[in-house]
Deep mutational scan, measured.
Amino acid sequence: IGSLMYASIFGNVSAIIQRLYSGTARYHTQMLRVREFIRFHQIPNPLRQRLEEYFQHAWSYTNGIDMNAVLKGFPECLQADICLHLNRSLLQHCKPFRGATKGCLRALAMKFKTTHAPPGDTLVHAGDLLTALYFISRGSIEILRGDVVVAILGKNDIFGEPLNLYARPGKSNGDVRALTYCDLHKIHRDDLLEVLDMYPEFSDHFWSSLEITFNLRDTNMIPGSPGSTELEGGFSRQRKRKLSFRRRTDKDTEQPGEVSALGPGRAGAGPSSRGRPGGPWGESPSSGPSSPESSEDEGPGRSSSPLRLVPFSSPRPPGEPPGGEPLMEDCEKSSDTCNPLSGAFSGVSNIFSFWGDSRGRQYQELPRCPAPTPSLLNIPLSSPGRRPRGDVESRLDALQRQLNRLETRLSADMATVLQLLQRQMTLVPPAYSAVTTPGPGPTSTSPLLPVSPLPTLTLDSLSQVSQFMACEELPPGAPELPQEGPTRRLSLPGQLGALTSQPLHRHGSDPG
Score class of each variant (00 low, 15 high):
residue 510 D to Q: 07
residue 236 S to F: 12
residue 237 R to Q: 10
residue 505 H to T: 06
residue 185 H to N: 09
residue 509 S to G: 08
residue 156 N to Q: 09
residue 228 S to K: 08
residue 415 A to Q: 07
residue 502 Q to T: 04
residue 314 S to F: 14
residue 146 G to W: 01
residue 354 F to D: 13
residue 378 N to T: 10
residue 183 D to M: 15
residue 389 R to I: 01
residue 351 I to Q: 08
residue 464 Q to D: 08
residue 127 G to P: 01
residue 150 V to G: 02
residue 188 H to G: 09
residue 371 A to P: 07
residue 252 D to K: 08
residue 227 G to W: 10
residue 427 L to Y: 12
residue 365 E to D: 09
residue 248 R to T: 11
residue 333 K to N: 12
residue 135 F to T: 02
residue 145 R to V: 06
residue 183 D to T: 13
residue 378 N to E: 04
residue 430 P to D: 12
residue 508 G to Q: 12
residue 133 L to Q: 01
residue 171 K to P: 05
residue 512 G to L: 04
residue 443 T to K: 04
residue 409 R to Q: 08
residue 234 G to M: 10
residue 190 D to W: 08
residue 415 A to F: 04
residue 189 R to M: 10
residue 356 G to T: 08
residue 501 S to L: 13
residue 259 V to E: 13
residue 407 E to A: 06
residue 207 W to T: 10
residue 500 T to Y: 12
residue 205 H to M: 04
residue 413 D to M: 03
residue 368 R to E: 10
residue 432 Y to N: 13
residue 337 T to P: 12
residue 312 F to G: 07
residue 194 E to G: 11
residue 231 L to W: 10
residue 416 T to W: 05
residue 274 R to P: 08
residue 169 P to H: 03
residue 258 E to V: 09
residue 387 R to W: 15
residue 425 M to N: 11
residue 370 P to F: 08
residue 501 S to D: 15
residue 308 R to P: 10
residue 465 V to L: 11
residue 401 R to G: 10
residue 359 R to Y: 04
residue 384 P to Q: 14
residue 416 T to F: 04
residue 181 Y to F: 07
residue 246 R to K: 13
residue 282 G to H: 15
residue 137 S to K: 08
residue 442 P to Q: 12
residue 250 D to W: 05
residue 249 T to P: 10
residue 337 T to A: 11
residue 354 F to W: 12
residue 366 L to D: 05
residue 467 Q to H: 03
residue 243 L to M: 08
residue 409 R to W: 04
residue 318 P to E: 13
residue 340 P to R: 13
residue 511 P to V: 09
residue 308 R to T: 12
residue 495 Q to C: 13
residue 312 F to E: 07
residue 128 D to T: 03
residue 287 S to D: 15
residue 247 R to N: 10
residue 265 G to R: 12
residue 202 F to K: 01
residue 325 E to L: 13
residue 498 A to I: 07
residue 506 R to P: 09
residue 353 S to V: 02
residue 299 G to E: 07
residue 323 G to V: 10
residue 183 D to F: 08
residue 399 L to N: 01
residue 227 G to C: 07
residue 227 G to E: 06
residue 308 R to N: 01
residue 262 L to T: 10
residue 332 E to W: 06
residue 436 T to H: 12
residue 403 L to F: 10
residue 346 S to W: 08
residue 182 C to K: 01
residue 194 E to P: 03
residue 493 P to Q: 13
residue 135 F to R: 02
residue 224 G to M: 11
residue 185 H to T: 06
residue 292 P to F: 15
residue 152 I to E: 04
residue 315 P to E: 09
residue 238 Q to C: 12
residue 498 A to E: 10
residue 444 S to I: 11
residue 171 K to D: 01
residue 408 T to I: 08
residue 135 F to Y: 07
residue 501 S to M: 13
residue 327 L to G: 13
residue 382 S to H: 11
residue 312 F to V: 12
residue 420 L to F: 06
residue 406 L to I: 11
residue 188 H to V: 09
residue 443 T to I: 13
residue 266 R to A: 13
residue 268 G to D: 12
residue 398 A to E: 05
residue 409 R to H: 05
residue 250 D to Y: 08
residue 353 S to K: 15
residue 387 R to F: 13
residue 170 G to E: 01
residue 393 E to A: 06
residue 294 S to T: 04
residue 187 I to E: 03
residue 284 S to Y: 03
residue 405 R to P: 03
residue 387 R to T: 05
residue 229 T to I: 07
residue 364 Q to S: 12
residue 261 A to C: 13
residue 424 Q to A: 05
residue 473 E to K: 05
residue 181 Y to T: 11
residue 506 R to G: 10
residue 433 S to K: 04
residue 397 D to R: 06
residue 150 V to C: 06
residue 133 L to G: 02
residue 503 P to E: 10
residue 360 G to Q: 07
residue 254 E to S: 11
residue 460 D to V: 04
residue 505 H to N: 12
residue 199 Y to Q: 03
residue 323 G to S: 07
residue 412 A to C: 05
residue 369 C to P: 12
residue 436 T to S: 11
residue 456 T to N: 12
residue 476 P to R: 13
residue 249 T to V: 14
residue 352 F to N: 12
residue 219 T to P: 12
residue 256 P to T: 10
residue 228 S to H: 13
residue 336 D to I: 09
residue 361 R to N: 12
residue 291 S to C: 15
residue 334 S to W: 05
residue 149 V to G: 03
residue 360 G to N: 14
residue 180 T to S: 10
residue 478 A to P: 10
residue 141 I to K: 01
residue 163 L to Q: 08
residue 261 A to Y: 12
residue 196 L to N: 01
residue 140 S to E: 09
residue 159 F to C: 01
residue 146 G to E: 11
residue 344 A to G: 11
residue 255 Q to L: 10
residue 364 Q to G: 10
residue 197 D to W: 08
residue 202 F to C: 11
residue 302 R to S: 10
residue 443 T to A: 06
residue 266 R to F: 13
residue 248 R to A: 10
residue 274 R to V: 05
residue 265 G to L: 13
residue 182 C to R: 02
residue 450 P to V: 09
residue 328 M to Q: 01
residue 160 G to A: 03
residue 245 F to R: 10
residue 393 E to V: 13
residue 197 D to I: 08
residue 383 S to L: 15
residue 421 L to M: 04
residue 241 R to Q: 07
residue 376 L to T: 15
residue 461 S to L: 06
residue 354 F to R: 12
residue 378 N to F: 03
residue 446 S to F: 10
residue 456 T to S: 12
residue 344 A to R: 08
residue 373 T to I: 09
residue 394 S to H: 12
residue 350 N to C: 03
residue 480 E to M: 13
residue 511 P to N: 06
residue 502 Q to K: 12
residue 414 M to V: 14
residue 479 P to L: 11
residue 259 V to T: 10
residue 370 P to M: 07
residue 145 R to S: 12
residue 304 S to I: 14
residue 314 S to P: 15
residue 458 T to K: 13
residue 403 L to H: 04
residue 325 E to V: 14
residue 261 A to W: 13
residue 244 S to R: 12
residue 198 M to N: 06
